[in-house]
């Protein structure tokens, strides 16, 4: 019961959030310089006929709520209109770019966790030792280097000097895609892994002092059981939260890395759309980004439900 009501509450909240976001997004068009007409015309010649055509196509003569309802109805069906720049449907433009960014984000997240969680645990186990200090220092350095600088360093080191990885593009087959995306993913993951290391280390240190961990050891439980069933599972919740937020950030904000590696992803698309005043594309991207953040948060909440019985049974508020 508690679970159902929690999920229902979260879903309702997500819908409200997306609704508010869509109003603001649609407002972008109205508030754009020169008015919607001018923007939607783009580079086409401005004659009374074309302007009338635009007004009719986009229902610009209707009152705002009605226009918004029209637009929202189309958006819900996946129709965000046509890109002013390329004249292709916005949905196609985005679908074209999404695989690169999604691959990059997923890959980066994978690296972040594969490195961050064990390294954080190791640091916590050897608390105060040389290794811990080294890890702490290393993560500080990684946090301090901006992703684009990291991209350039990696490009120079591994692609130009060593020639291990391609310099440019995203590749076509799956294996090519992986090799092409490795350096960008590392560049993106470096600072994030550092963040997860710090988070994991703090969570594990917090756990190390807990009686239940000592009690587990006192019962002679195997080491794997103590570390995975006890330490890792209890430390998972705060780390999960960070991971989700990182995923959302990767999907929408990997633009520096995409630029540095010449990847045609969503970040590059957003920059181009903004500079070309391609409002329909911007609208779709903003709404898409918002939906991603909302969806990821919803997933984190569900993960809490799975991992923590106290949340599942409504004993503690989420």
């Amino acid at each position: 019961m508690a679970v159902l009501s929690l999920v229902a509450r979260r879903l309702a909240a997500a819908l409200v959030l997306l609704g508010a976001l869509s109003v603001i997004t649609y407002g972008l068009l109205v508030a754009s310089p020169g008015g919607p007409e001018q923007v939607l015309l783009g580079t086409r010649p401005s004659t009374p006929e074309t302007r009338a055509a635009i007004r009719a196509e986009y229902h610009l003569d209707d009152p705002f709520p009605l226009r918004y309802a029209h637009w929202l109805g189309d958006a819900v069906h996946g129709d965000f209109g046509v890109s002013i720049y390329s004249r292709e449907p916005v949905t196609d433009v985005i679908a074209d770019r999404l695989p690169v960014t999604a691959g990059l984000a997923g890959y980066a997240l994978l690296i972040t966790f594969a490195v961050g969680v064990p390294v954080g645990l190791v640091a916590a186990m050897g608390r105060g030792g040389l290794l811990d200090q080294g890890i702490t220092l290393g993560s500080l350095v990684l946090l301090a280097v901006p992703p684009f600088a990291m991209s350039i360093l990696l490009l120079y080191g591994f692609a130009v000097a060593l020639g291990w990885f391609p310099v440019f593009g995203a590749g076509d087959t799956f294996m090519e895609r992986v090799t092409h995306l490795t350096l960008p993913a590392v560049a993106l993951a470096a600072a994030q892994a550092a963040m997860v290391v710090r988070q994991m280390r703090a969570a594990a240190l917090d756990l190390a002092g807990q009686d239940f961990l000592t009690f587990a050891r006192a019962r002679g439980l195997p080491r794997t059981r103590v570390w995975i069933g006890y330490a890792l599972r209890n430390a998972a919740l705060p780390v999960l939260t960070v991971g989700g937020l990182l995923l959302a950030a990767n999907l929408t904000g990997a633009l520096f890395v995409e630029q540095a590696f010449g990847l045609h992803g969503l970040g590059a698309l957003l920059i181009a759309a903004v500079s070309q005043k391609d409002i329909p594309v911007v609208q779709a991207l903003v709404l898409f980004g918002g939906a991603i953040v909302v969806a990821v948060n919803l997933l984190i909440d569900l993960a809490y439900l799975v991992v923590d019985p106290r949340v599942r049974h409504g004993a503690v508020a989420l």
């Binding site: 009686d211 239940f212 000592t214 009690f215 587990a216 209890n234 991992v307 019985p309 106290r310």
Partner: peptide
């Protein structure tokens, strides 16, 4: 151990 509220794994 002493504290029954802290001795058991809250997740199992």
């Amino acid at each position: 151990m002493q504290d029954p509220f802290a001795m058991l794994n809250p997740l199992i």
